[in-house]
Design a protein around this nucleic acid. Structure first.
Lengths: 169, 169
DNA sequence: TCTCGCTAGTTGCTTGTACAACGAACTATA
DNA sequence: TATAGTTCGTTGTACAAGCAACTAGCGAGA
């Protein structure tokens, strides 16, 4: 399967790589800016709220959040700190394991997420998905999904069905 | 052209977006780790060396470097600081405009780049390009190139023909 | 039951980047 | 020329994220 492993990229490969490299840098900046400007939420914060909202109890362990977000555990501690400080999330000792904590979505957090969702959906459409119209999306997803496979990578993260979904608790 | 602007993503769009979002997070980590582990260079540093190496004089103005790298000018100041400290680059007052500085590739910088190039090429192939074999690369590049168009974005950044290319000076 | 190793999560420190403010130098105009 | 306004690049500061060190709590085996 590997053919020209050590050759420089040819012109087509080069232009594809350049386009992708640009997207990798620019897309998160644009999406993040929109979320921060309109809802004062970072992408990481949005991601946490979204993941919590999709859980039946609106709650997840820190480690689980960190691995889904492909963020270090300490990084996730700080993200949740900010969300707790602003009242969007609560920290609750895990009943089944006193070492652990659950991050629990509050009603305020749920409504902030519901407000932010349309923004995020719109910017994802405008900046990414609309430009793929007419392409073979399943094939594309399959290929891109194999990038850097060694890295576990997040369950990340997109507008899904349910940021407005019911929040238990 | 825009059709369902405000509808949630359908299943195909969703999976494409998820794959891409994962790639956006994971690909730079993997490429950066390889470069740092094997050559003690960050992606930003590699990018600067590469861009300088492609200039006939091996030199570029700070502003130009910053805009190509889609980094703030102050961020670029710091990156070049590091490269100057380690001797890979020199700062030279711009002869035609005494406000400005040129970052100039040193022979040491050129050889460090030449050493690092194969690593970068290999990781880009293994983690990205090889997975696109058989796809319509020009079409893909064209689509991806339109992502987040508002953002100028870099001339970034890939293995090109010439990191081993001659360095004037 | 006590001990030892392991896991969960937080905290201290370091690093990378952005933004704002600044000094220096350029340019256009009178 | 003198001056006003702009641009180049650096510095101060703030903040997000990672790693290493640490505390608290788990659970298996003597």
């Amino acid at each position: 399967m590997p053919l020209n492993r050590d050759l420089p990229l040819n012109a087509q490969e080069e232009s594809a790589w350049r386009a992708l490299a640009r997207a990798i840098i620019v897309v998160p900046k644009v999406l993040g800016r929109a979320l921060e400007a309109e809802h004062n939420l970072t992408m990481a914060e949005y991601f946490v709220l979204m993941n919590l909202s999709e859980e039946p109890e609106g709650a997840l362990r820190m480690t689980e959040l960190a691995s889904r977000g492909s963020l270090s555990v300490s990084g996730m501690t700080r993200v949740v700190d900010r969300l707790v400080r602003t009242g969007l999330v609560e920290r609750v000792r895990c009943p089944s394991d006193a070492r652990g904590y659950l991050a629990v979505l509050t009603p305020i957090g749920a409504s902030r997420l519901a407000e932010a969702y349309p923004t995020h959906l719109r910017t994802v459409r405008e900046n990414v998905i609309d430009h793929l119209a007419g392409m073979d999306l399943p094939a594309l997803a399959e290929r891109i999904g194999r990038f850097a496979e060694q890295e576990p990578g997040p369950n990340l993260a997109g507008p899904r069905a349910g940021p407005g979904a019911p929040v238990a608790g």
